[in-house]
Design a protein around this nucleic acid. Structure first.
Lengths: 125, 125, 125, 125
DNA sequence: GTGGTCTAGACCACA
DNA sequence: GTGGTCTAGACCACA
């Protein structure tokens, strides 16, 4: 996995977000084994405790589950993943619209922009 | 200004990006004086050399200009700011669509999502 | 508060249990301010991080809430406390019956025991 | 044997209590040989002197007896065990009722709770 | 002072 | 080796 950490949010919550994204976008598959806490932590360049906290939060959400000695796995309950996907998409839309409004674009202008962009692409393809 | 630095991109280019966004979104006004390199650097928690480099890049773009003795100022040429805004918006749209596609949403679905969201909001307001 | 820690369960979960009991049994009142993490930790003889973890769990349950700089408080939502009370009572009953069964008493015998005990007391009072 | 020690009571008396419980609940059988003081102490994570003191107390009660060279054994006098069982059960009931009263349940409510619980179980089985 | 976050490092049970 | 727990100690923002 590739990790990107920012300075303005708690690390553990960014880890949660990124692992969740990996699951929701299918980079980690349902039932797939996840690397060990220690490995993930060294990969992301954070303390194992911080990674542990992120994974426990994901467990609480039902996105992953731990098996005592063998490691952690992505959930196999697809409806949990699907629901997380919808929530995440909603958040992305929200954040995008706020950014665009800061740039001076109304919702309507944003939609027009996407629409015209799509049409250009449709014609070209 | 609030700064948010990520681990996966060169710092100086992120500084450029964020100052540009501040100008384009109107948080820094045309003709407004910009804080000193030293102050900006300490605020952002980066090396003054890195901040210096970012400001020089912005000067090259015409977004800011330096006056020998009194410091740096946001450009007063509105068409430069306007053009940067369009470029930035385009980048945001691009990034947003890629993220949404990773979540499994086609351009059309994204547009529909925005559309229905807007309508809900219109009705409520 | 008086703390009693056992060797056979994680400390943090015992802390959760004991604070919950204090709230549910009315030793800590709705809306009452709770001692600081550091004070509670030193009182209980545990590391502040362990106490912090317990309090965050209680926050997640809605039993307490934190106010950024002023401290933590017992929830004022009585129905949360009431519900926790029912759950706790149920657990106590469960544990009690198991203990008694280990001593060879059936549910019926336990009830008879309590019944006759109550009658004796009623007569004496 | 599994040991659980608390911080708020003398260790030796907790050891007495737990060994007595093991005998009374049949986990240790009449006439059965008991592990050595040294082994029991290391298992429970206590000082051998403390375990020794616990076993001497149990000897005084007649729950166990020592044979010069071969070690200690659980008593074979069943009436001693039976009597200890009654005393222990009485203590459990007492403690349970106090806990429940702290939760706001009267003796009568407790009995009703157990009664309804039993009926539910009877119906389901 | 307060809650919150993070790191470093240790120890544990489980299989 | 794996997840889980705990401690010691540091630093941060907030007011």
């Amino acid at each position: 996995m590739e990790w990107s950490l920012r300075t303005d949010l708690p690390i553990y919550s960014q880890l949660v977000e990124q692992i969740r994204l990996a699951i929701v976008s299918g980079k980690l598959h349902p039932g797939e084994k996840i690397a060990s806490v220690r490995d993930l932590a060294s990969e992301a360049g954070v303390n194992p405790n911080t990674m542990q906290r992120a994974l426990q939060e994901l467990e609480r959400e039902g996105m992953v589950f731990a098996q005592r000695t063998s490691g952690r796995y992505v959930t196999e309950e697809l409806q949990i993943i699907e629901k997380a996907k919808v929530v995440l998409a909603e958040k992305q839309v929200q954040a995008f619209l706020i950014t665009m409004q800061n740039l001076g674009y109304s919702s309507e202008e944003v939609i027009n922009l996407l629409q015209s962009r799509k049409e250009t692409k449709d014609v070209n393809s």
